[in-house]
């Protein structure tokens, strides 16, 4: 059956409806709770095993030793000296990252944390090289 202007009723209905789109930068976009966003880093948990560096499909992560290392804990009398726990930094290149969160999965100590940040665009490329300490 041929019916000219078949959408007419739908179109008129929409005259009295709220738009489905939103003025994005002024209105916050809604994000699902488990969205894979920027990866955050918790230096106190990292053991520097480099698993994430090897797993990363886009070579976005570097785990260098921190420049400032914490001092070794004070030696307790009668016990052998405890070596200082090494501290690691994380350099996350957000322009390389594909947000697959594979690093979060392989991390044995849960030092990498998935966040829901998604507004990461920047005009300066240097800003995309995040250095977490």
């Amino acid at each position: 059956m041929i019916h000219p202007a078949r959408v007419f009723r739908e179109v008129i209905k929409h005259l009295f409806r709220k738009p489905a789109t939103c003025a994005y930068p002024f209105e916050k976009a809604k994000i699902m709770p488990d969205f894979r966003g920027r990866i955050d880093f918790d230096s106190s948990k990292c053991i520097g095993c480099q698993m994430c560096v090897r797993a990363c499909p886009s070579k976005a992560i570097e785990i260098p030793l921190s420049k400032v290392q914490p001092p070794a804990p004070a030696q307790i009398e009668g016990q052998p000296p405890v070596p200082a726990k090494k501290k690691f930094d994380c350099i996350m290149k957000l322009d390389h990252c594909v947000y697959c969160a594979q690093c979060v999965e392989v991390c044995p100590k849960k030092a990498l944390i998935m966040t829901q940040d998604f507004e990461l665009a920047h005009v300066d490329r240097k800003e995309l090289r995040r250095h977490y300490t």
């Binding site: 179109v11 008129i12 929409h14 738009p19 489905a20």
Partner: peptide, 9 residues
């Protein structure tokens, strides 16, 4: 047109 197409315009 935007309103009829359910957009902001």
């Amino acid at each position: 047109c935007a309103i009829m197409q359910n957009r902001v315009g």
